[in-house]
Amino acid sequence: MDKNFKDAINRRKFLKISALWTGGACIITIPGFTATPYRTLGRSEAEIMDALADAIIPPGEYAGGKDAWVTRFIDQQISSNGYLQHDHDLYKTCLPAMNNDSRGEFGTIFTELDENYQTEYLQAIEAGHYNSGAATRGWGNFTPSAFFNTMRNHCMMGYYGSPIHGGNRDYVSFRMISLF
């Protein structure tokens, strides 16, 4: 327990510091080398996650999932010292699989679909229509609908939870519901 307390505190301090450092900038460019501020997700994985976050919580009067740093929340939590580290492989496998699996039905990858088609595609995944034979389409041992449910829940945590965990940038969700 004590160890956990310390971890939680250290983590919080670290997040505060890292928030200061990264500020609003999302990409640091060094000539010949492009890095992302993420610990676990690569550039293309982060882009897919951003698109998903915006599909789950779309932008409007208040920021969508992407601008609220939901991807940053998930990246931090599935990293080796995050609370959701057990879901690391789930994301690493399912993000690219999910992005590619729209080709058959929609003719292109998820991130390039229009919003309406993205919604239609995700509704089909949620309903389990892509579960059959998923392993042969890159989903490994994971079930598409189960991934969707977990990812949806994590988006809610990242958007509506405390910013100390990496999401809910500038308390956007609290402002949206006029909590303050």
Binding site: M1, K3, N4, F5, A8, I9, Q77, Y83, L84, N153, M157, Y160, G161, S162, I164, H165
Partner: peptide, 25 residues
Amino acid sequence: DDHGDDELTAQRSFPLACFFGPDNE
């Protein structure tokens, strides 16, 4: 003071962890 107002680790729904214990490790 060690926990504050963090809903995600509070003992009501603890989706990330249980601040008040027990620990997942």
